[in-house]
Design a protein around this nucleic acid. Structure first.
Lengths: 109, 109
DNA sequence: ACTCCATCCATAGATAATCTATGCATAGAT
DNA sequence: ATCTATGCATAGATTATCTATGGATGGAGT
């Protein structure tokens, strides 16, 4: 954890959660949404984001289609699949579990 | 985060914290201490632990010496250096910061 | 017209940290 | 005699990230 960007292994969760909250978004929007809602603590690099979205497409957690933004730009929109929604629940529970476990270790007297 | 062992990037923190709590420990004890104080949620694989301890030695966060356990076994004991104590504060603050940021993203309405 | 910035996508290669699998050794219990 | 827990360590694979790069374009400002 030498960086101050994201905790390795949490990017899928962040993306899934952002999509379930805001519906259909394109990549750039997803990144900005995560950064903003984290109050700019988390930085989502494009070199991390797009490979992550590829992985999620392959796993069937999201589907994508090309469209046009309000600013008249070409963009690829992603939306959650039912499988993605299931995965969100799994990853969120897992995250809480592990973070709580770490907290117990850290705060052990 | 497909595993249920440790959050990547948190092992140094867990080790540093365990050493500051319990003083001088050998590797095997460190692993068991983390597993127990996490109520067996976190699993510390030896293949992760020993390389991590090597990294921490190189960085000067811990010092090691060979000794004998209460069970009469040869073991390598680690203790925190002042630099390690400083690093603990850094990593702990960093961890809280990032986890809180993730929590904000996850719990955004 | 030109320039600049923000928006948008994507990949290659390097880096880092983990896991799996393996090897070695021995104390104590059965 | 054998088994289990204790103890150290490394090689190689895997995974996920970052850095660096490349390309394209809309709109704002000059």
């Amino acid at each position: 954890m030498g960086r101050d960007e994201i905790l390795p292994g949490t990017l899928h969760l962040l993306i899934l959660r952002t999509l379930v909250q805001r519906g259909e978004l394109h990549g750039y929007e997803i990144a900005k949404a995560i950064e903003r809602s984290s109050e700019d603590v988390l930085q989502v690099e494009e070199g991390s984001l797009y490979p992550a979205l590829q992985r999620m497409l392959v796993k069937g957690w999201v589907k994508a289609h090309w469209g046009t933004t309000t600013e008249n730009r070409r963009a690829r929109y992603y939306r959650l699949t039912p499988l993605g929604r299931k995965q969100l629940h799994i990853e969120q529970a897992q995250f809480e579990r592990v973070v709580n476990a770490i907290a117990r270790v850290i705060h052990t007297a």
